[in-house]
Amino acid sequence: MNAHWHIGEEDFFKDLERERKEFFAISRRRVLQKKDIVFFEEDSGNSCYYLETGVIKIFQITSSGKEPIFFLRRSGELFGLAEIMDGVKRKANAQALSPCIVHEVSRKAFEDYLANNYLATRKVIQTLGRRLRYLGDVAGGLMVCDVGTRLAKLLAYLCHEYIPSEKGWRNPLTIPIKLTQEQLASMVGSCQQTVCELLKEYQAEGLINIQNRQITVTNPLRLLEAVEV
């Protein structure tokens, strides 16, 4: 399996129950409906967020109206970290792809929290470092990987959170997040038509099954092996 393949992050507060309780104690709990905006590009970066449930997309809107998606943030992840450290303006938008519960913490409260919680501070540094490496991998992938490889890795990435064990990589798994072909295309740096054709190819080869925009990967490991070079 490709060493640069990006998988979903584990819960930020895994094995940090005291830090979780302290974070929740200083946060504001927000309930979001699908399509609710968390923040807009150019907003002040004065808060960060912990996603308790749901899926958030981080994206921009181009001058032509396209919406390239940079990340999907899922349950257990912190987001809005890059801007809160310096208090600079947001570089992207954040929007709920499903009903969500988020916990928002202000910049000042977060700084005080980190000053008193070494383990959480170390975890933030690790998280930012991992995401920076991921962006480097994405940039490299756009230059050396074809669209088919990038799409297969994306589908496997979307499966990862829901695979209970290593053996689960060979079992059928339905991705619970419904994404349009345009959204998939924006995440792999391609166009809707190319993604549509690739999905049809994967389905004809028995690698995936699509019904009502719901994608089932019949064997995530086989899908990855099919595009490995």
Rank of each mutant, 00 (worst) to 15 (best):
K108A: 12
T53G: 01
S186E: 12
D15A: 05
E17Q: 14
A96T: 12
I208H: 08
C159W: 12
S165A: 12
G136V: 07
T127D: 05
V55M: 06
N209Q: 12
I61A: 04
L179Y: 11
S106L: 08
F70C: 02
E111W: 04
G87E: 01
L154F: 10
I177Y: 08
T216Q: 11
L51N: 05
T194Q: 14
D43Q: 07
I58F: 09
L132F: 13
Y49E: 04
S106T: 13
T53A: 05
S186V: 04
Q192E: 15
E225Q: 14
E197K: 15
I215G: 10
E111P: 06
T194V: 13
Q211W: 03
V195I: 15
R213I: 00
H160K: 10
I177L: 15
I175W: 10
F13A: 03
V217T: 04
A204P: 06
G140K: 13
P220T: 00
R18H: 08
Q193W: 08
S63H: 07
K14E: 04
R20C: 03
M187V: 09
G87L: 01
K14F: 07
F110I: 07
M143A: 14
G87N: 01
G87V: 00
F71T: 01
Y50A: 02
A115S: 15
A96Q: 13
C100I: 05
G140I: 03
R107D: 09
D137H: 15
L221R: 15
C196K: 15
V124F: 09
T180P: 08
S47R: 13
R133F: 08
P220G: 02
D146S: 10
H6M: 10
V229L: 09
F71P: 01
E22I: 01
T127G: 02
H103M: 05
Q181L: 09
T121Q: 11
F79T: 03
F79K: 08
V147K: 12
L135M: 14
L78D: 03
G206W: 10
I177D: 05
E228Q: 12
S64G: 11
Q183V: 02
L32F: 09
D137Y: 15
Q126E: 13
Y162T: 07
P164N: 05
D137F: 15
L224N: 05
D11E: 05
K14S: 04
Y50K: 06
Y134P: 00
G168M: 08
S106A: 13
T216V: 03
D86V: 11
W169P: 03
I84M: 10
C48P: 02
E67L: 02
K66P: 00
Q181T: 06
P176Q: 06
E22P: 08
C48Y: 01
G45N: 12
F12H: 02
Q181W: 06
R133P: 00
R74Q: 14
L97T: 04
R73L: 10
S63I: 02
F13S: 03
L51D: 05
